[in-house]
Every structure is written in structure tokens, then in C-alpha cells.
């Protein structure tokens, strides 16, 4: 059963066509990796799927519900959560406060204004459980600024997980990480339950091949090829795009 369906999405940006007729089908439980050289439109596709950028044409559905055209905050309501390529955290808040905000986002009481936050014990317990599970419990009182880069990257992931998503979009989860941190993050992705479907943008080919069930190659805003890892690994044209001289000059949009 396909969980995420992207159909014929077009997107132009300042007169530049960034996405051309992109279609994508992600099955429930799948680990789907999106690769492609810089400027291929991978992050733009994420923005378009979550509604952060409006799309010009096409339809995005999650679990049969159309979400394209809806405001970006509704993405979480259909079980979709995302992380960012560059850490996008509440830098002046503590780890715990970051997580509280993330968890409360999906609670029916998020609009309540007469009872202090700390009296919602379910929220505190959930946060504690997540922090312990992810080895950040000791650091819970630290302000984000004081965390190491790797810890911040982890928190980035944790905020997305807090909404208990069915579909998790990860934008280069290992970018900027040391080899050890990359290995740890890869293990985390591998160990995630299959109830969470992953769509990952990744550049590190070792990471790509150690998690992917299916790989889609994006090139110049178009789906170049989509297939099982072996197919992609064996394809000469993909190697040409990725490693050959064909890398475009403009930066990732």
C-alpha cells in the first residue's frame, strides 16, 4: 500500500524550473532514499511535500488524503514529520523545552491557556521516555547552544519523532557529522520500527545503501530513475550524473 504519493509536481522559483513533472510513490514501511547532485531539487521537493512551498501543479497525497494546497502545519496532522538539512531548533531553549513543544504540538490541549505546562504530566512523561531512549536525558537541561553538533542533529531528529509520525522525511540526517556519528545515526535509522516509513535525502553512499529499500535519483528537477538499490548501483548513467562532470553550477535550491 502506498503511503505517500507525489503526482506530476511542478515547481518554478524565480523563473527557474526546479521541479519538472516529479512523481514518487512511497510504500508504507519502506526506506526510500532520494539522491541526486546538488541543485537537483531534493530539498525543494521536501518543501513542496510539506506545503512549506506551494506547488504550481500536481498533487501530493498521504495515506489517500490530499495535502498539497493545505497550509504547512497540517502535514503533521496526516502523520508526516520532517527534519531540516541545517539544524532548525529552538536555540535559546533547553533540550527538554524543545521536546515539550514538539510533543505538545499534537496534543488536543495545545490551545489551552489556563493551566501551566508542567501540570500536563503525560507530556512530561513522554518527553522523559524519549530523552532516555535517545541518550539525551543527561543533557535535558542544556540550552541547545551548548550541545555538540552531533547532539543537535540528534535533537533535530527527535523533534520530528515526537509527533509519532507514520512518514518521516529526513533531509540529510548525517550532514556535517563525524564518521562515528554518521555510523550511529545510520544504526538509529536502521533500528526504527517499520511502522515508521522513511523518506531520506542522503549524499553519503554508504549510508544510502545500508538503509535503502528503494532509491530515487533526482536530476535537474526530474525523476531520473527509481528502483531497488542494486539497480541503481549498477546503473552507469547514475554514476555519470553523480560522479561525472555533469554537476550543475547552481547551488541546492
Amino acid at each position: 500500500m502506498s503511503l505517500l504519493k507525489v503526482e506530476r509536481v511542478h515547481k518554478s522559483y524565480n523563473g527557474l524550473q526546479v521541479l519538472k513533472n516529479v512523481s514518487l510513490d512511497v510504500q508504507a514501511g519502506e526506506r526510500h532514499v532520494l539522491i541526486g547532485p546538488n541543485g537537483a531539487g531534493k530539498t525543494t521537493l521536501f518543501h513542496c511535500m510539506t506545503g512549506t512551498l506551494p506547488i504550481d501543479e500536481g498533487v501530493v497525497t498521504v495515506n489517500g488524503r490530499q495535502i498539497s494546497g493545505l497550509p504547512p502545519y497540517t502535514a503533521v496532522r496526516v502523520g508526516m514529520a520532517r527534519t531540516f538539512q541545517k539544524n532548525n531548533l529552538f536555540d535559546n531553549l533547553t533540550v527538554e523545552e524543545n521536546l515539550h513543544l514538539a510533543i505538545a504540538a499534537c496534543k488536543p490541549y495545545r490551545f489551552h491557556f489556563f493551566k501551566p505546562f508542567y501540570k500536563y504530566t503525560d507530556l512530561l512523561e513522554e518527553a522523559e521516555q524519549l530523552l532516555k531512549q535517545w541518550d539525551l536525558w543527561e543533557r535535558r537541561a542544556c540550552v541547545v547552544n551548548q550541545l555538540s553538533y552531533g547532539e543537535q542533529r540528534l535533537l533535530e531528529l527527535l523533534l520530528a519523532l515526537a509527533s509519532k509520525p507514520r512518514l518521516l522525511l529526513l533531509d540529510e540526517p548525517t550532514s556535517g557529522m563525524s564518521p562515528a556519528e554518521t555510523a550511529q545515526t545510520t544504526r538509529l535509522m536502521q533500528s526504527m520500527p517499520r511502522s515508521i516509513t522513511l523518506l531520506v535525502i542522503e549524499h553519503d553512499m554508504d549510508v544510502v545503501f545500508s538503509i535503502a529499500d528503494r532509491i530515487t535519483v533526482l536530476h535537474h528537477g526530474e525523476v531520473f530513475l527509481s528502483g531497488a538499490p542494486e539497480e541503481i548501483r549498477g546503473d552507469e548513467r547514475v554514476k555519470e550524473i553523480y560522479f561525472g562532470g555533469g554537476a550543475p553550477l547552481y547551488a541546492e535550491a
Binding site: R82, N88, H100, F111, P116, F117, L159
Partner: peptide, 29 residues
């Protein structure tokens, strides 16, 4: 004081800190 310590108040502060993240978390900012 009560307002600012409530979920709604915390949400407002989160928006001031980082609006795009709040949106991504599912808040109608």
C-alpha cells in the same frame, strides 16, 4: 503569568524563537 506558562503561551514563545520549526512541528503559528 498563567497565560505564558500554559501550552498556548509556550507555543507563542516557541514561535518567537523559531517560527519555521513551529510550523513544521504542526503549529498553526
Amino acid at each position: 503569568r498563567v497565560f505564558l506558562s500554559s501550552p498556548l503561551g509556550k507555543g507563542v514563545r516557541g514561535i518567537k524563537e523559531n517560527e519555521s520549526r513551529m510550523t513544521a512541528l504542526g503549529y498553526n503559528t
